[in-house]
């Protein structure tokens, strides 16, 4: 007998004679296909303008910086400006996301860009979030050629762009978006929910920013 059989057998014995009930199977199938929402905090159900304000505030509370631009076409200038203010080199790695690719980068002649996954020595990475969650200031990033996951973790600085229309109130709405993009029950290899720059409190419970992931997180909200 395999360990799989032993373990499942032990679980069924513990559950008792009802283990083989069709009703149990039905209950499980229903829950999986309907994936009912549980309790959603009031702060996750705000109208659009308050929702965006909360998203921003929550991010700032966890030491991320946030700026707003009117259109995607303004992003290259915003990126270059932020790098200058931080005294960071004018260089950038990003994925094949058409939103990013098609921005007017030619206006920022000094800014060097590389397309692909991140390497250990990239200083700044740029990604696009598929959506945001206002209740905790969280950004959802999906792996793949458009936004390789290494960009979220290897560079010192991480810049994430997000459209204001993609900011949801709660996690549950973010999952619905993911299902709409990928199909029910289908996932990309990695889903990253990012809430601030990396940190550690492992030395005497003192919070320090910039552990193994980015030391700085800058979020650019596109209003259009």
């Amino acid at each position: 007998m395999t360990s799989r059989d032993t373990i499942l057998g032990a679980l069924r014995r513990a559950i008792g004679p009802a283990a083989n009930d069709a009703a149990r199977r039905k209950a499980v199938q229903t829950r999986l296909s309907e994936h009912p929402r549980g309790l959603i905090p009031a702060r996750g159900q705000l109208p659009a303008d308050e929702r965006i304000a909360l998203f921003r505030k929550m991010l700032e509370d966890v030491s991320a910086s946030v700026e707003t631009v009117k259109a995607e076409s303004e992003i290259p200038a915003a990126v270059a400006g932020w790098l200058r203010r931080r005294n960071a080199p004018q260089s950038l790695v990003h994925g094949a996301d058409p939103h990013i690719r098609d921005m007017p980068w030619q206006d920022e002649a000094e800014l060097k860009r590389r397309e692909g996954k991140a390497a250990g020595d990239d200083v700044t990475g740029l990604s696009r979030a598929v959506c945001g969650v206002a209740e905790t200031g969280t950004l959802m990033l999906l792996s793949g050629p458009d936004n390789p996951s290494t960009i979220n973790f290897l560079p010192e600085n991480h810049i994430i762009v997000i459209s204001a229309a993609d900011i949801e109130g709660d996690y549950e709405s973010a999952w619905d978006r993911l299902r709409a993009i990928k199909g029910d029950g289908i996932m990309p290899r990695t889903v990253n929910l990012v809430t601030g720059p990396s940190r550690s409190a492992d030395i005497e419970q003192t919070l320090l920013l910039g552990a193994h992931g980015p030391r700085a997180l800058h979020v650019i909200i596109v209003e259009d």
Partner: peptide
């Protein structure tokens, strides 16, 4: 309020993925 990184991993990298 939330940890910095909440990450869901599903299977190995897909054929088109550059990392993972």
């Amino acid at each position: 309020e939330f940890s910095v990184y909440t990450t869901l991993s599903t299977g190995p990298r897909r054929p088109e993925d550059p990392d993972g």
